[in-house]
Design a protein around this nucleic acid. Structure first.
Lengths: 291, 291
DNA sequence: AGAACATGATGCCCTGAAGGTATCAGCTTA
DNA sequence: TAAGCTGATACCTTCAGGGCATCATGTTCT
């Protein structure tokens, strides 16, 4: 049977594609690393790395084994932690990622529900955008995420956790800020616009574009985080479309106006988790199903 | 970090709840097993087994760690098997490019053969013209292509996968459409012709020019895809030479006529693959050699 | 009560796995 | 053609881990 050291060696070489650098990263010299890999290949019974005298490249089998090796190492690293927590009297840990906007109200509701139903569970929190959450959920660094589409629904289970209105953030000095009642889409023609990044904030970008007629020549900034948007609005740079929870960000000098002719609560926030999750706490949290 | 041997030792003791028997099961003596467990507990940082001088019992942390240990060992045991299967080509992913015309029947036969012989293989499909296939095969984005010459036979291995007739596509209203039996090349003199692009559809261009006397002043369109050709024929723009599989495209208003004096099945479709392919699945598929 | 037994821990020895240094071998580049 | 990379080998050294003998302590039987 191979050893964890061999796996670590293999992962390092597979990532560096260079024995010397990989050895350095592992704080060892190159020759024993070469032998480690040879031995691993003998144990596994398969050529994992193709080395011509100049380059190193993964074989197809190596590719597959690399994924297994990473899983093994990740599992091995977390196992002691798990045991320690249980020993310390907790019945588990839940690591939750959340988007900045969801931290106002929505996240609190989730935490209260968990706290109440499962008081012995430890909760760790990390603020990150959906894209980072997806990566962290895949690698096992997170158990649960609060984010927005898109994500791969084959890999992640999800449930709509919150719906909210889409509002227009307007600088307090702007004429539109004083207007009573909901604004009409026409009112926004020729107004400078702070828009979402179609790459980093694809959900909002797609949502806004599908709901409203956007003139792209009015876009003065392209931004990926709601908070940044609201700051730019406060600075008078333009108006922006934001979820209702942005009102909780507490930025001065911004007025939030409703819009006419939109669906009721078009902005969705999803609770998402890796379907392959091994953390029993995840299942329990989904069972108690906050709201 | 703990070792697999330590995990195996722990699992054995946890199952036997007796160091002596566990040691026996592991074909070793009891003292080193005791030390193994002690060391494991130091690494994990938690007491896993409660031993009073007479009995051994799992702690809560031990219970949880046991589950992790079992998972780790199971994963570790099947990882080499996985790698071996991929290396042997009986598992893995095959990315196949195919021309639009080949999607009718021919591609299906290939897929069925692979499916039947190598059920564990995932297949990804992408429709593209031969030229794109060649590029994708070179860059490693594809493993296998279904296309037509020309391609560099130094770089690509190939095998004729299908031969078919060359037919004439005629608009339904055209006098030639009503003619019974095969047409003679003379019949086509002075008929408007939709011809293949000598650059993008060089295979067909060369084939047709080599088999039939073409009057280039009759050419009304130059096209690179069979489907486009058939549409233009349906629109009454002229006649076109197409492979028999074009009859499966299901375009209305087109009649397909055979031609006299042609070789039996002059249109060839090749299965092609990069000779330097490192994907073992390719070798396997070529070995089972559909048809 | 005391002897025999059961069972996990400890002390000591020895083998072999694995790391280090020096060097080789084959390809690339100037 | 020489210099430089880079992975593989040879050889030495260390120490982790297994075996044997024994201890310590709790149980059971007479």
């Amino acid at each position: 049977m191979f050893s964890f050291d061999q796996l670590r060696g293999f992962v390092a070489v597979a990532e560096e594609l260079h024995f010397g650098r990989a050895a350095e990263r592992l704080s060892m010299t190159q020759p024993p690393l070469s032998r480690q890999i040879q031995k691993l290949e003998r144990e596994v019974g398969v050529l994992l790395l193709e080395r011509d005298r100049r380059h190193v490249v993964l074989t197809a089998a190596g590719e597959a084994f690399l994924a297994e090796a990473r899983r093994l190492l990740a599992l091995a690293e977390r196992a002691p932690d798990l045991a320690q927590r249980i020993s310390a009297g907790s019945s588990g840990t839940l690591r939750i990622g959340f988007t900045a906007a969801s931290s106002y109200g929505v996240l609190g509701r989730l935490l209260n529900a968990v706290e109440e139903q499962l008081p012995e569970i430890d909760i760790e929190l990390a603020e990150m955008v959906t894209r980072e959450q997806v990566a962290a959920l895949s690698s096992g660094e997170l158990d649960l995420g609060l984010g927005r589409p898109p994500f791969d629904s084959e890999v992640f289970g999800s449930r709509i956790h919150h719906r909210e209105q889409l509002l227009v953030a307007v600088p307090r000095e702007h004429p539109l800020a004083a207007r009573p009642g909901p604004l009409r889409p026409d009112d926004l023609i020729d107004v400078p616009l702070i828009m979402h990044s179609p790459i980093k904030a694809r959900y909002f970008y797609d949502l806004v574009v599908s709901l409203l007629p956007i003139s792209h020549q009015n876009v003065v900034h392209t931004v990926s985080q709601v908070l940044t948007m609201v700051w730019l609005v406060a600075a008078g740079r333009g108006i922006a479309f934001v979820p209702a929870s942005a009102t909780g960000l507490g930025v001065e000098g911004v007025v939030y106006q409703a819009l006419e002719g939109l669906p009721e609560n078009p902005v969705e926030l999803h609770l998402l988790w890796p379907r392959a999750s091994r953390n029993p706490v995840v299942r329990r949290v989904l069972e108690i199903g906050p709201r």
